[in-house]
Every structure is written in C-alpha cells, then in structure tokens.
Amino acid sequence: MNPTPSSRPFHQVDVFAGNAYRGNPLAVVLDAHGLDAATMQHFANWTNLSETTFLLPAEDPRADYNVRIFTGSEEFPFAGHPTLGSAHTWLQAGGVPKSSGFVVQECGAGLVRIKRDAGRLAFAAPPLTRFEAVDEPLRRQLAVALGIPAGDIVDASWLVNGPEWIGVLLGSADQVMALVPDPVAMGNLKVGVIGPHLSGGDADFEVRTFIPGDAMVEDPVTGSFNAGAAQWLIGSGRAPRRYVAAQGTVLGRAGRVHVTAEDDDVWVGGESTTCIQGTVLL
C-alpha cells in the first residue's frame, strides 16, 4: 500500500446515458503516479463500483495516456465503459490528443482509439481473442442458468476481448428482459444476452450482462460485451451496420450504446456525464 497518501484529482462519471445517474458509474483517479497495484486494487474495492480507473503517463509514444482498470477484485486489460469514461475525464481535465482525429488510450489490451462521434465518444472495438461457437454441453448449461428452454437460444458464442464473455442471442428483447438467471447454474461464466426489439422505439436491441462473484451481479451497461456482440452480430448479418442497444432497463437505468461499423472498424459509443469532481487521498 502507498505509505504517504497525497491529494489526487478524482472524478465520478456516468457512462452510456444521456441523463446523469441513468447509466453505469465509473470512478477515475486522474493522476495515479506512484501508486502500486495493491493500492489501486484496494481503492477500487472500496469505491464499490463495477470499475475504477487510474490514469498514468503513456509508455507507448503513440498513446495519449495509460489507463489501468480495476474491478473490486481484479484488474482488467480492457473494458468498455471505463474506456469512454476515462477518455471523457482526461479530455475534460485539459488533455490534448497527439492526433487531431483520435484519442489513443494505452491499456493492458494494447492501444485503443477513441473518437468524437455526434457529441459522443466512441472506441474502436478491440479484436476478439477468442471467437467461436460454444459447445453443446455449455449451451445446455447456459439454458439452465438463464432459466429458458435450450431451443430459445438462437446462437451462442465466445466473445473474449479482455473479459471472457459468452454471448447468447435470443429471439426478442422481451425474452431478454424476462430472464431470471440462476447464479448457481451460471457458475463462473460471464454471460451477455441480447435480443432484438420487434416493435420499434429508440433501441434496436436489448442487452443484459451477468457477472459472477460472491453473488452474481447484473451490470448496468457493458461496453466490452456490446463491442464483442456487435462484431459477432454485424459479421453474421444479424444486425445492421448501425444500431442502438439498450441496457439496464430492468435495473431502472437507461443505457444506450451506439454501434457503427465503418470499413474494418466497429465503433462503440455513448454519452458521459461528470457527476462528482474533487480530490481523493491516495
């Protein structure tokens, strides 16, 4: 642990929602110089948010800053809403990108490009490091864990881009929102479920994501899963090259994830709002 705490700039940001307190919160320590990993992990556990990020000077000369991303129990090489929230905070604090077109974030998964898109920030989805259909026994486990007949699963695939997501496609958004998962049957699986809205509205798909732990947690809005799901669904022709996914509906949130495929890139974007701004002793 850091033996001599010092005052460091700190923001808490709401990500993936147009209105504050309706998306997914993120804690950001803007100057993490001198902090060791144990201190970062301890503080991330204390904030009790899904993720806390720590900004550092870039080591790669092509990057604008380096970010380390911690959940309450582990460090992630990449995560979506921490990427957008960290970039939003870095820019708000006066960060000036080296490139006129992109902010370049350095993280455990490598370099991630972030661009301004219609008043939002959007990141280029990193490559999937595991992308394959789940086997039949795992598909049966997923059906039991989600409390649905196996025949309701349209498709299921590994979508690993840092977090080890499994994506499950259902036939409709209503089926997604009606899920009552069994945490025991879910075990240690990180599962994201997506289904199309069939009756219009401001979103084309509904998403829910479930994260294992001492007690299974449903994440309000999940950029990394949406990035993998977009690559999967657009690549297979099941989703258009531009769409909006809603997430957090059953939790009383109003997350909106804006997806656009351009050339070889899939961009995942959303709005961010700073809700708390001050300093923290670390």
Rank of each mutant, 00 (worst) to 15 (best):
K115E: 15
P82K: 04
G23H: 00
A229Q: 04
G200Y: 06
V96Y: 01
E218P: 11
R256N: 00
R8I: 10
Q175L: 13
G213A: 11
H11N: 13
G147N: 00
D219Y: 03
G200N: 06
A261F: 04
T47P: 14
L55H: 04
A215Q: 15
L170M: 06
F43N: 05
F205L: 07
V244N: 00
W165F: 10
L56S: 08
R130T: 12
P57E: 05
W232Y: 05
K98M: 07
G223Q: 04
F78G: 00
L138C: 09
L49Y: 10
S172E: 06
V184I: 14
V96T: 15
L142V: 09
S86F: 02
D263V: 10
D204L: 02
I211L: 15
F78M: 06
L35E: 02
A143L: 07
Q231D: 04
W267F: 07
N45T: 14
I153Q: 04
G94F: 11
A93F: 08
E106L: 05
G201C: 06
T260M: 05
P220Q: 02
P77Q: 05
S6G: 13
G213N: 11
V180L: 13
P61M: 07
T52M: 09
I166G: 03
G213M: 12
R241W: 03
D64P: 09
A156E: 01
Q247V: 11
M186I: 11
P181I: 06
D31G: 08
V244Y: 01
V207R: 00
F54M: 05
G110P: 09
V104T: 15
L91G: 06
I114F: 05
V168C: 05
L111E: 07
W165K: 02
P183E: 02
Q277G: 13
L189I: 09
G201W: 00
F225D: 01
L189Y: 04
E106G: 03
T53F: 09
H81Q: 05
F43K: 08
A87F: 01
D214I: 14
V176F: 01
A215L: 14
A145F: 07
L159T: 11
A87D: 00
T274D: 03
I276N: 10
R139T: 10
D14A: 03
P3N: 06
T71F: 10
K190I: 12
Y65W: 08
V28H: 02
M40K: 12
V250N: 09
A254H: 12
T279R: 15
L91P: 09
D152H: 14
D14V: 02
G119T: 11
T249A: 10
A20N: 03
P5Y: 06
G187M: 11
G23L: 02
V184A: 15
D135N: 15
W46V: 12
P97D: 02
A145R: 01
L146M: 10
T273V: 15
P97F: 06
V244E: 00
A145C: 10
L35W: 04
L189C: 03
L121M: 08
V250S: 14
A133N: 12
T4H: 14
A143C: 08
L189E: 01
A27I: 11
S157L: 13
A118L: 15
L169T: 10
V207K: 00
T52R: 05
N19M: 14
G110R: 06
A254K: 12
S272H: 04
R120Y: 01
Q12H: 08
T274S: 13
H42V: 11
A178Q: 13
